[in-house]
């Protein structure tokens, strides 16, 4: 157990340091989601009342696509110089690598969300009618739901042709309940029409179920070469 946390922490530190120096994932995600926001703003040009109903969908579609950009880069870095092969033969627990990657992606996508949300508010003249604090658990649980499966499927699609296309093809169908939870929960809070508790419970269930599944199956996937 001790070595699990030690390895997780070491890998996480390494990834954050790499990202801090290169800012590859964060910059591409930021610019990508900015483009999505601007294009949607042109495409719909909504009034304040309308935007309250569609903003939940727009914001999460933008984050979903942006997250895929980051997730695709997760493992690519480890393929150079056969780092992943070295990891495979080392006695370090496989789940430590997975947890580090998932937490790393979670941090990157959360930073992106924190930076992009104010822009959304400005572009769409958003004014929250429901209890705004509920957006925080929805965002945290929703982001974890995306990145935990995303990290897993990115590892899975490492050994496929046209890897970058493969990840969304695998991730999006499985993520449908989570996306529904995030979008409907966010819309419920923004409009204040109905309570968002159910969606928080749904996202929590999704997170628990799939985090367990990922941890149970990751070792098998890592060694499937």
């Amino acid at each position: 157990m001790n070595s699990l946390w030690a390895v997780t922490l070491a890998t996480l530190k390494k990834d954050i340091r790499l990202e801090w120096r290169s800012k590859d994932a964060l910059n591409s995600m930021l610019f990508f989601s900015l483009l999505v926001v601007v294009i949607f703003a042109f495409a719909f040009d909504p009034l304040a009342e309308e935007s309250r109903h569609i903003a939940g969908g727009l914001i999460w579609v933008a984050f979903l696509f942006a997250a895929v950009v980051a997730l695709n880069q997760t493992w690519a870095r480890e393929l150079r110089n056969q780092v992943l092969d070295a990891y495979r033969v080392s006695p370090a627990p496989a789940n430590a690598l997975f947890l580090a990657k998932a937490v790393g992606n979670f941090i990157f996508v959360s930073v992106l969300e924190a930076l992009m949300t104010p822009l959304f508010v400005v572009f769409y003249n958003l004014h929250v009618l429901g209890p705004a604090w509920q957006l925080i658990p929805i965002a945290l649980l929703g982001t974890w739901a995306l990145v935990v499966n995303g990290t897993f499927f990115a590892a899975m699609s490492l050994r496929t042709r046209s890897r970058e296309i493969m990840l969304p093809l695998l991730l999006f169908p499985i993520s449908i309940p989570a996306v529904l939870g995030m979008v409907a929960g966010t819309t419920a809070v923004l409009t204040g029409d109905n309570p968002a508790h159910f969606y928080i419970v749904l996202l929590l269930t999704y997170d628990v179920v799939f985090t367990t599944a990922c941890l149970l199956l990751f070792e098998t996937i890592l060694h499937a070469e």
């Binding site: 499966n149 899975m156 699609s157 050994r159 496929t160 042709r161 046209s162 493969m166 093809l169 695998l170 169908p173 499985i174 449908i176 309940p177 749904l202 269930t205 999704y206 179920v209 799939f210 599944a213 199956l217 098998t220 996937i221 499937a224 070469e225």
Partner: peptide
């Protein structure tokens, strides 16, 4: 699609894992 596109010698393992994920997803959907 995964089975078709995979270049791994262990496509079966990847596909089986995906099938498990899909089955877990159905009740949630």
């Amino acid at each position: 699609v995964l089975r078709r596109f995979s270049t791994s010698a262990q496509t079966q393992v990847l596909a089986a894992a995906l099938a498990v994920f899909g089955a877990l997803d159905v009740p949630l959907v």
